[in-house]
Amino acid sequence: MVQASFICLLSLFIFLLEYKRVKKLQSKKDKWTLSIGFMIALYFIVSMILDLPVPSMNKLVGKVFQPVGEPFSNMLESFQDQ
């Protein structure tokens, strides 16, 4: 918990620094993207520290492509056993 809050604080600091730079661009879209981006980033990093479930990229890719990948895998395995 301490770690999480420490990282939040640090992130806030980094965010403020970065925000100052983005402000100079005078683009609303950039500001919003940065803010939302930081929010998402914080969500992920905090859930990592607190051991909350985070979607795994591998599983996602696996779910979509595993059926197609299975034959490849089986074929390769057959060579490996030789």
Partner: peptide, 18 residues
């Protein structure tokens, strides 16, 4: 300057965390 700050901070963090 910002980047240097970030670098220093991350160092600091490394040292603190363990």
């Amino acid at each position: 300057k910002r980047k240097i700050m970030i670098l220093l901070l991350s160092f600091f963090m490394c040292l603190i965390t363990a």
